[in-house]
């Protein structure tokens, strides 16, 4: 249950509060997940908490590029990321992914930090961040540490963040070829849809048309965000043709079954993630396919 709320004005104040209350506190930003979780679990469950509101801290909401590194403050909303000309230039697929989160109202409140911390396997922003090899910066009174996004998760809805720590920002290097990226998502309807499956693809293609680097990260098929190395290797060093792309895409389906096992949803998800990946690869290459 909620004991009370605290609204720090600076990151310094915030870290003091977190150090004091540790797991007796919970950070709240857009509250779009928190209030739903509270409603579903009723107030009786869980230990008493102070809600620590970070929306009053302007220094946590930013998007900037410096020395080839893009930094997004944890309290930046999906709306702001989707509309950011910076993100549209350097990582358009991240903007696309953020634009498919929830509804306009949810995007206006939900933050990238919240999306990461919530650690849902269906989170829309995570596949592009994984494909970008993004890192998160965790800070506490004791100092700070940077962790690769794929190492940040322990499992569905579980992360390595410690009591007293704040996820301050997510950052990634500006990709060499921001144009060669794509994000595709299948939901049950056209808007306000939880991802049934999604995939982010980021490629580096040289002048001869050869793929020199590939990053492929699916959503809603693994317990946590991950890159599909076998699929990436299948593409790397090749001039893409239908066979290669198909083979790479199929690796994603294989990996899903290897990691998650065969489930009730596998007969659907396996062929569809392969098809979706195939389309996403072609889309990243600028080829429009069905």
């Amino acid at each position: 249950m909620t004991l009370g709320f605290i609204r720090p004005k600076t990151v310094g104040e915030l870290l003091e509060v977190l150090a004091e209350y540790k797991d007796g506190s919970k950070i709240v930003a857009g509250a779009t997940d928190l209030l739903v979780q509270q409603r579903n679990s009723k107030q009786v469950e869980g230990k008493p908490l102070y809600l620590v509101d970070i929306t009053g801290i302007p220094e946590l909401a930013y998007i900037n590029v410096e020395s080839g590194v893009v930094r997004i403050g944890a309290a930046t909303t999906h709306r702001d990321i989707a509309r950011s000309t910076v993100i549209q230039d350097v990582a358009p697929f991240l903007a696309d992914a953020c634009l498919t989160v929830g509804s306009p109202q949810i995007r206006a409140r939900g933050t990238i930090g919240g999306n990461i911390i919530n650690a849902s396997p269906a989170a829309d922003s995570l596949p592009p961040l994984a494909a970008l090899s993004a890192q998160v910066r965790l800070v506490s009174k004791r100092g700070s540490r940077d962790i690769a996004i794929c190492d940040f998760f322990k499992g569905p809805y579980k992360t390595v963040i410690e009591p007293g720590e704040l996820l301050q920002e997510v950052f990634f290097k500006v990709p060499k070829n921001p144009g060669n990226c794509s994000f595709l998502k299948i939901g049950r309807r056209e808007a306000v849809a939880i991802s049934r499956l999604s995939v982010a693809v980021l490629l580096d293609v040289d002048e001869s048309g050869k793929i020199t680097e590939a990053a492929i990260a699916p959503g809603s098929c693994l317990p946590m965000p991950a890159r599909i190395v076998r699929a990436e290797e299948t593409l790397t060093g090749k001039v893409p043709d239908e066979e290669t792309v198909e083979a790479a895409a199929n690796e994603v389906g294989e990996e899903m079954v290897r990691v998650s096992g065969v489930r009730w949803s596998t007969p659907y998800k396996k062929p569809v993630i392969c098809a979706l990946t195939r389309r996403a690869i072609w889309k990243a290459l600028g080829v429009d396919v069905d």
């Binding site: 949803s265 659907y268 569809v272």
Partner: peptide, 14 residues
Amino acid sequence: LDLERVLLGRSLRA
């Protein structure tokens, strides 16, 4: 006619 029925001809709802 949800995603699963159209693709596979049967429902997969758990």
